[in-house]
Amino acid sequence: MNPRIRNVIAAIGLGALLAGCAGHPAGTPGYFSDGSATMRDVAARMGSPSSVWFDDQGRENWDYSGNQASFFGYRATFDESGRVVQWRQLRTERDVAGLVPGRSTARDVHAALGEPNEMFFVRGEPHWRWRVYYNIRPHFLVAHMSPDGMLKGVIRISIDGGARAR
């Protein structure tokens, strides 16, 4: 393909991606986190969550992980009265950086990254996979664990090709 045409297509794609991120209010840091938002507000704007779970402190969490092709995920954490105490995007750099191979468990991975989009096994060892944007490029984020649930590594694989360990 002509390099000029390729650059134009890439620029259009990047623009669309940035516009998409900026256009989704849920992606704004602090959205729903002004202290007054409730479960009702979250349900009204985001709909039914894809997953409901309770953390170590017994707090109710609603995850919005979209479908299997989704690149974005969000989480609302509520206090005991149903008020939002935290709203955040999932699978950020900070989430990945907080996972430590040999120390973090499958439970930590689940709490940090949410439900995987895909799950596969290599020689009996579970691998959980998500779709993420990294450096504005689409990637697979893969968490590799031992059968007893200990994290062995996290790797990013460019959907365009090439892999990079965290």
């Binding site: 997953s51 439970r107 439900e115 995987p116 096994f121 649930g149």
Partner: peptide, 24 residues
């Protein structure tokens, strides 16, 4: 039944949960 056999037979679970002891 091993976890990978379950995945192969039944697909991806709709929800993954952990109890207080980390049991999946």
């Amino acid at each position: 039944t091993a976890m990978d056999v379950v995945r192969s037979r039944l697909g991806i679970p709709q929800a993954i949960r952990f109890d207080g002891t980390g049991t999946q």
